[in-house]
Computed example of a mutant assay.
Amino acid sequence: MPDTVSTFDFQQDVLAASHQTPVLVDFWAPWCGPCRVLGPVLDRLAAETNRWTLAKVNTDEHPELMAQYGIRGIPAVKLFVDGAVAAEFTGALPEHAVRAWLDEHLPSPARRTLAEAEALVAEGDAVAARARLEAVLEGTPDRATGETAHLLLARLVVFEEPERADALVRGLIGLEADAVRSLVALLLKDPDTLPDAPVRDTYALALRALQAEDFDAALTHFIQVIQRDRSYDDDGARKAAVALFQVLGEHDPVVQKHRPIFNMSLY
């Protein structure tokens, strides 16, 4: 049976307990019709598993918790992991939708490894991050975790292994996946085959710098092309700069150096 949490033991039974096992908290009230629909669904799902525990908070008795967690409508369901809200939804979802939501948001070994990889990328340790991502993909991660791992690994290997990066993002949609595909095309392009134009040599310098992973020089030359002939290679210089910004990230020093000049060059 789920716990009915008092104000006194919310800290222990939810926040502290969630460091060991995720805790799903159902914020409800006796007068709430949708709460009476959702409650039995959560009870059934909780009885099927030991991956998470269920706790119920009567918001009539504990309005301070309702205020603390910004609850404006009930039923409100919040998943606590490591002492914090990891995911939430409001309303009486059908059972199949709650199952799908739990599958998406419950922690798993693959998700923990992915989180470690993301932290390592933020710290600048690409080698260790790559090892974690390879480990995730060697297993059978859920779809969302797998797609994120494919995308992040593609960003890490695109300059060294463009063909593999292209394979990693195959079938993925979104700006980051498009950026990887754009960079793959540029990295595999032969500068000697570029069409004649006044900006040809500058564009070729940009491509060679990109292929040498000299991003500062690449962006300098791409922006020069934009300033002189933006239409060259089907707006290729602008697309290349945008792709680099996306893959390197807006906090990268090279991106921060060139982004303002790039923005001004578009107008």
Rank of each mutant, 00 (worst) to 15 (best):
L137E: 07
L188T: 15
F80L: 06
R259N: 07
A144G: 09
T113Y: 03
F222S: 01
A92M: 05
S265M: 02
E88Y: 00
V37L: 14
D229Q: 15
S231W: 01
G171Q: 04
R51N: 12
L207E: 03
D103N: 13
D178Y: 07
A17I: 02
R181A: 10
T49V: 10
E213S: 15
R200Q: 12
A135D: 12
S265Q: 03
Q11M: 12
T193Q: 14
T140C: 07
F8D: 14
L93R: 11
V136Y: 02
E250G: 11
A212D: 13
A185G: 12
A67H: 03
K56V: 02
E147R: 13
T193I: 04
V98D: 01
P195E: 09
K78C: 08
A128G: 07
A144R: 13
A177G: 10
D26Y: 02
L152T: 13
I223L: 03
Y232T: 06
A87P: 02
H251S: 13
P195K: 03
A197S: 13
A76K: 07
D43F: 08
R143F: 05
P75W: 04
T145S: 04
L175M: 13
E163D: 15
V85W: 01
E160F: 02
E104L: 14
A179C: 08
R111V: 09
P198G: 06
W101F: 15
R200D: 00
L248D: 03
A46G: 07
A16N: 10
T113D: 11
V255F: 00
T220S: 11
G73W: 00
P162D: 10
V225L: 01
D234W: 12
A119K: 11
L133K: 04
K239W: 07
D142P: 04
P40Y: 09
H105T: 09
G174E: 05
L168I: 04
A149I: 03
E213A: 15
L54M: 08
D201V: 11
D234T: 15
A76C: 09
L42P: 06
D192M: 09
T220A: 12
G139Y: 02
Q20T: 14
D201A: 13
D26R: 00
